[in-house]
Design a protein around this nucleic acid. Structure first.
Lengths: 362, 362
DNA sequence: TTGTAGGCGTTATCAG
DNA sequence: CTGATAACGCCTACAA
């Protein structure tokens, strides 16, 4: 069933030409129509298919780009991957996906594996790898773009001695939303609705930390105390447990919870309902991500939309651009390729209650 | 920033040995401890990293396997991808992911792109490609395994002239659940709970068709009429619309809906609630997949669990086995590698109502 | 244990 | 427009 794959040499012989000529028709070089036909039918006959690894070797580039992703199983990350793939495919490039599994050691070893393939470029999604290992690893990589590696407008100066600012990085392009600002928006939204006892369930990794900082800063600016902070692990179950602890003593219950992400919110919903509390009447919930199912929770979840697919697309465009594959691209694409910070959006649904409307209309 | 990558030759010179020796230390061949050290430090010094495309060329295998997936963005598919990756990584293999985008043309062109890379094996997830194009394309691929390409226990003989039976396929290994049986179980579960007016909202593609067939067959076997069938497109919105039409004339409303998958169910939930109907009191819902959020719907969704990750793992094991990489593998892994049909599970939550208990306890 | 040299399948340069 | 032929970086007999 598995005879040796025919090579360019076989085709050349079959067509009675040289390998160079075959290569030319394969690559749209100048060939006479006649020979072109002969060669093409020989190709057809033999079922020849070009060997891309040989091609990569001589061309010095593989046409595949590496993507390091925390977890394909995360809906948002999957969207990014999809965005990346969609634009890459238009240019006949492909990608190898590796999961960092949401932990640094795994990220590093995954990255090293990746680097051994001759990838032409690298996209790092939400990586927690620190600056120094990164720059060591990436020394010889032509182009790297980071998605969601903190392009904060207001660095979290106190919590991290030296902020993870990607702009300072080894030829690192960056795409992402303004995580800090978005989290502040979410918090302020609650404040504007008249909430004073606001809780936060943290998400993990650096974006989780940024959101926490934005949260506490926002409360501080509003002269509110931030006594209600619970650690989530980013999952539904973590959210459930965290919400439980938040709800445990009846006299000090928050009127609103800002969940680090939608999955956390799903867990929190469950906990809140178990306590026979109504959402949003008794407790309002706001979250982050806007995963596809967020609108189908009961009540539909108010949340910050992260445009995962767009982020992936932009990242891919940046790569194509730097790789010089974008000559013939539409202006629009080019423009998007240069942009660096994607806009987010607060999607109002019905999970937060307006405390003021009930009280006084002042 | 981007000087020429050091090659094995550079290392050889730096270490004062031949390239063969360097190659040997790279591949754990017999080398004296002394030279080994010298070479290794030279490697360290130069920051040498093996060029895997050259290696692939000479070895005749690339160490990457191709995965054709309908859509990374689908939670179940992502789980499969993750399962595949996890076991592959243990053996230092990687994968290229391509999305078929849930349509055949795209599937085919994606596949062709994939085949030009020298992938060592192929995993096809839920492909709708027909037998003939498949066998033409796959002529030279060493090993292919299909996930979820219908391993039905009871072929849907009437709807398809010739059933898509993978076992008949070109050296195609197969892993999947018994889709037909599972869908029958779901339907029968409803019947056992006393439901007589049962609706179905179809999912797409071949597994959707199989489920539909199982549904009608099950009803037939129970002497129930199957008047309530609506076409979904597999998405929440499709489910919403389909449920709407199901609910439109008040005198003929089903007491239960079997949704082709969880996403459809989410949409159906929304429609049902908009009609001021209670789940499960007025309408019961059962679905398929058990996506991570299914348990967080209100009420928690009763559904058939598909173990996506396991399916991916098994598929990967099959490949490793056929590729002969599994010599040193634990028995357990080996055993799993040979299995072909994965067990599913009906997860009872609270979205279906028992009609009998309310009426008569006979 | 170590070195030499041929070859993996393509592309690209340089003559014809 | 077409044909030799030298790389590309690595592995692997075969020799030493």
């Amino acid at each position: 069933m598995n005879k040796r794959m025919p090579t360019i040499i076989d085709v050349a012989e079959a067509a009675g030409v040289s390998t160079a000529t075959v290569s030319r028709v394969l690559n749209k070089g100048k060939v006479s129509d006649l020979t072109k036909d002969t060669v093409e039918s020989a190709i057809e006959e033999l079922g020849y298919r070009r060997n891309n690894v040989a091609r990569s070797l001589v061309m010095g580039k593989s046409g595949v780009i590496g993507v390091l992703i925390p977890d394909v199983t995360g809906a948002l990350y999957a969207q990014m991957a999809r965005g990346i793939e969609d634009v890459l495919n238009k240019y006949n490039l492909q990608y190898i996906l590796v999961s960092g599994d949401r932990n640094v050691e795994q990220e590093q070893s995954a990255l090293e594996l990746l680097l051994e393939r001759q990838i032409d470029a690298l996209i790092l999604i939400g990586s927690d790898l620190d600056e120094s290992t990164l720059s060591k690893l990436l020394k010889n990589v032509y182009v790297t773009v980071f998605i969601q590696r903190e392009a904060t407008s207001k660095a979290t100066s106190e919590s991290l001695g030296e902020s993870i600012n990607s702009s300072a990085h080894t030829n690192g392009l960056t795409v992402g939303i303004d995580n800090y600002q978005a989290a502040q928006d979410a918090t302020n939204y609650l404040i504007q609705k008249g909430h004073k006892k606001i809780a936060h369930i943290t998400a993990t990794r650096h974006d989780g930390r940024t959101r926490l900082n934005a949260f506490t800063d926002a409360l501080e600016q509003a002269n509110l105390s931030s006594n209600f902070i619970a650690e989530g692990d980013g999952t539904e179950d973590g959210g459930y447990k965290a919400a439980k602890t938040l709800l445990q003593n009846d006299d000090e219950i928050p009127t609103a919870i800002f969940c680090g992400n939608d999955r956390i919110a799903a867990g929190a919903y469950k906990a809140i309902k178990e306590h026979d509390l109504d959402i949003p009447r008794d407790i309002s919930v706001i979250a982050f991500d806007n995963l596809p199912w967020a609108e189908y929770l009961d009540p539909p979840l108010t949340t910050i939309r992260q445009p995962g697919k767009s982020m992936g697309e932009v990242a891919a465009f940046k790569i194509l651009d730097t790789l010089g594959e974008l000559d013939d691209a539409p202006d629009e694409a080019l423009k998007r390729a240069r942009e660096t910070t994607i806009s987010y959006e607060l999607i109002e649904r019905s999970s937060v209650h307006d405390l003021r409307s009930g009280k006084h209309d002042a």
